[in-house]
Design a protein around this nucleic acid. Structure first.
Length: 465
RNA sequence: UCCUCAGUAGCUCAGUUGGUUAGAGCAUCUGACUGUUAAUCAGAGGGUCGUUGGUUCGAGUCCAACCUGGGGAGCCA
């Protein structure tokens, strides 16, 4: 086969210089045609669109043509021409075709018809080859890049918080144990308990449930930092919104109060939405057409409209006066339920809502306490369809107040002495928040199950692939 | 974890008050067609009815347990 440098399909579909020899490589989506001519739709993942390869059958080996089936991988040399047919503007008049790998049609599970998302989950190793997952994965990439770009351009530093942690001080959820001990026969201490001093790290260790505490350490030196890494929760959560392994973005900023924090969260989300509209147009249009006809409109709405900011106490009043029947009662001091959040966002304000000043009793120990003694400077950003997308707060920078709350919760000071040290030495007002990356992608793609926005989902009873 | 719905051909589904040989569309295979767009047309092959146990003369259909999946809730991001 003639040695021609490969061009990506995305580039060829956007070109206007024709009648030149090109090479493309990719996977066959469909083959149509008759005895004389074959039309082969090829996709290489560079774009959601396929390029049409036209092959005069008499020019090619019969076995080769037979083996080019849905799912096979080919390399094609040919002339890039304007298409004679309708439905596409350019196509490749094939001169040489090499079959890299066939895909036996009797057993290849992807057909050229639609599949359910449930079925595709069972073949997650092959589903990136579908239009839907190509689109989702490209958007996922674009959002990752946009996140780094936003923070970099805003003067933030990317801080790598540890994945293995020796503390569970935040109590954000059940953790996955990390150990090299022999589980059949673990070493025992005198009192019969497992002797973790003999474990790899000499203490109990787990996978991280949050990089926030470490991010605070970074912020109190570099001023503005963010983390972006995997996070692990061993909760037995079986919902379309939870994963055991997910990715989280956690910016942490010195000298930011709760209002600066909210400003950043709003700017950040609007930036990402705008980035997607500008850079993922084809994929968004596909998803808009196939899954969610209001997807693009909804993203645009976020970009164009200010978020509603209200106090927790106001939210309770609004809910009480709504006249709505809720399954769970609305009471000051209790956390808002999904149904309450949905009412506020989707019916009452009809836009993203940021709720602040939550009761102390339902929030975490590191949040800054207000002078009323009852509330803390927490803020949750609630989005339509998916609920809480961001949770954050101004942090308690006063050592004594922080210590007293830590003691109330019986968290041993020896476990978080290093965290308390930041308040002891050169403490500073600071704030931060956490964004669940997959929840963002859920919103950006119109997918409705979080297992469809991560390549290989980890959920209770499932770690396949 | 709780509530609820579902599991029948490779995929999506139908299958009546329990009753002869379990059906359809798509996919696959064979044939037809000079440019197709999830091509079209004709024909063919394809089943341990999720698993185990029970009721019955007889179970895809009824009962129980379990497994797997969807939706809702809780926990949360």
């Amino acid at each position: 086969m003639k040695d021609i440098k490969r061009t990506k399909i995305k580039e060829l579909l956007n070109t206007d210089t024709f009648n030149r020899e090109v090479n493309i490589k990719g996977w066959v989506r469909t083959k149509r045609g008759n005895k004389k001519i074959a039309f082969i739709a090829v996709n290489d993942g560079s774009t959601i669109h396929h390029i049409q390869v036209v092959a005069e059958k008499e020019m090619f080996n019969e076995d080769l043509m037979r083996d080019i089936t849905t799912g096979s991988c080919i390399s094609v040399n040919g002339l890039l021409v304007e298409s004679m047919g309708k439905g596409q503007t350019v196509e490749i008049q094939a001169q040489e075709i090499e079959l890299y790998g066939s895909a036996d049609p009797q057993v290849y599970p992807l057909q050229k018809k639609g599949h359910t998302l449930e079925f595709l989950r069972e073949i997650a190793h092959l589903r990136p080859r579908t239009n839907t997952f190509g689109a989702v994965l490209r958007i996922r990439h674009a959002m990752s890049y946009a996140i780094h770009k936003f923070f970099n351009d805003s003067g933030f530093y990317y801080l790598h918080s540890p994945i293995i942690t020796g503390s569970d001080a935040e109590g954000a959820g059940a953790m996955f144990r990390v150990t090299t001990l022999d589980m059949q026969n673990p070493p025992k201490a005198k009192d019969g308990s497992i002797d973790y001093t003999q474990d790899f790290f000499g203490k109990e260790t787990n996978l991280t449930v949050s990089g926030q505490l470490e991010a605070e350490l970074g912020a109190l030196a570099l001023s503005e930092v963010y983390t972006f890494g995997p996070t692990f929760r061993a909760e037995n959560s079986n919902t379309p919104r939870h994963l055991a392994e997910f990715w989280m973005i956690e910016p942490e900023m010195a000298f930011y109060d709760i209002h600066d924090d909210m400003d950043l969260a709003e700017d950040f989300l609007q930036y990402l939405m705008k980035y997607a509209l500008e850079n993922c147009k084809d994929d968004l249009e596909f998803l808009n057409k196939m899954y969610d006809e209001s997807l693009i409109e909804r993203i645009r709405f976020i970009v164009d409209n200010e978020f509603q900011r209200i106090d927790y106490t106001t939210a309770i009043d609004v809910l009480k006066q709504s006249g709505q029947k809720f399954e769970f009662p609305v009471e000051w001091g209790t956390d808002l339920q999904s149904e309450h959040e949905r009412y506020l966002v989707e019916q009452h304000y009809e836009r993203p809502v940021i709720i602040t000043n939550y009761p102390k009793s339902i929030k975490a120990f590191y949040m800054k306490q207000n002078d009323d003694g009852k509330t803390v400077r927490a803020m949750d950003v609630l989005f339509p369809k998916i609920g809480e997308i961001i949770g954050g707060s101004q942090r308690e920078e006063n050592l004594e107040r922080l210590k007293s709350w830590v003691n109330e919760l019986n968290i041993p000071e020896k476990d978080i002495w290093w965290y308390l040290d930041t308040r002891k030495f050169g403490t500073a007002p600071h704030s931060g928040f956490g964004l669940g990356f997959e929840r963002l992608i859920l919103f950006m793609t119109g997918m409705s199950n979080i297992r469809d926005v991560i390549p290989f989902p980890r959920t209770p009873k499932n770690a396949e692939f």
